[in-house]
């Protein structure tokens, strides 16, 4: 049977992709950020997951406001990025795991979690930057597993509640664990932490709130469901709502997890950047 071995969180800021391309790992601005990743690389090299479920939020590449799914699951054989309007380099296609995708879709809809399935999905920096961070070299890296992208809407309100995001993850877990093949699955929760790009409040970052979230997501994620969506906008910033991805990931990890590694740094671009490695106990 398939099992979920752990979860990894990371920010997915576009500037990180440029910094990787330019090899700025020792640059004084970037070093405190990139230093958060070697322990994750070691864990991945040791545990070698067979599939990665990459939970991110599309930023206006894969979806437009004409049709905006609240929760969308990729079910394609491969996923391609695009330049997003900024000339981001074209990366080799990311192999998918469509058989497991459809099993998850079947399982979650039977579990009364109504989602949108996508047989074509252009993936943006929210998906690609974490893949670049965790599997340097991407398709040249023999350890990079096939991926299943899951995107949640944080572009347009109403966005899902934190409670719903956590419940999504728990339903995702039930679906994955019922897959008959022996597979090791790792789940990524990408985005955040606090940041705001728009309005007179642009540049808002909230270390205290980020640290609270990074603490509770390990020990008591249900406590975070008491945060309303507007409170999340107020305390994490308008784009800090990406924390919902972390909640979705956390739900998929089961009740108890071990925190193996954590890193937090302000600023990367306009953002408080958080990285965590959580290992499943059950």
């Amino acid at each position: 049977m398939a099992r979920i071995i752990g979860g990894i969180t990371t920010s997915h800021i576009p500037a990180v992709g440029n910094a990787i391309a330019q090899g700025l790992f020792e640059d004084p601005y970037w070093k405190p950020f990139f230093d958060g990743y070697p322990p994750v690389h070691e864990w991945l090299a040791k545990n070698k997951p067979d599939v990665v479920i990459n939970i991110y939020n599309d930023h206006g590449l894969g979806f437009f406001l004409d049709k905006m799914p609240t929760f969308a699951i990729g079910a394609a054989h491969e996923y391609r990025n695009e330049d997003e309007g900024w000339g981001i380099p074209q990366l080799p296609p990311f192999p998918g795991a469509p058989e497991l995708s459809w099993h998850i879709i079947e399982g979650m809809v039977a579990d009364e979690f109504d989602i949108t399935s996508c047989q074509e999905l252009a993936v943006d920096h929210g998906f690609t930057v974490p893949m670049q961070l965790f599997w340097p070299g991407l398709t040249d890296n023999p350890d990079m597993p096939p991926a299943i992208p899951i995107s949640a809407n944080t572009v347009q309100h109403p966005i899902p509640t934190l409670n719903r995001a956590l419940a999504f993850g728990r339903s995702l877990r039930r679906a994955v664990l019922s897959y008959p093949k022996d597979l090791k699955v790792v789940v990524l929760g990408t985005g955040g932490l606090s940041h705001q790009l728009d309005g007179e409040r642009a540049g808002f970052i909230n270390r205290e709130f980020d640290e609270y979230c990074m603490d509770k997501i390990v020990t008591d994620p249900d406590a975070l469901t008491k945060i309303s969506r507007m409170e999340l906008v107020e305390k994490a910033g308008a784009q800090g709502t990406e924390f919902l991805m972390w909640m979705m990931m956390r739900g998929a990890l089961g009740d108890k997890v071990n925190l193996l590694h954590s890193n937090y740094h302000i600023p990367i671009s306009n953002t408080g950047a958080g990285t965590m490695l959580l290992e499943c106990v059950d």
Binding site: V155, Q156, H157, P158, Q196, D198, G199, E200, R201, A202, S228, R229, M230, V233, E234, A238
Partner: peptide, 15 residues
């Protein structure tokens, strides 16, 4: 519903 919350310097992009 709390979608009319007033957060200074912030426009809630809703329907």
């Amino acid at each position: 519903f709390d979608h009319h919350a007033d957060i200074p310097g912030t426009t809630i992009f809703d329907g």
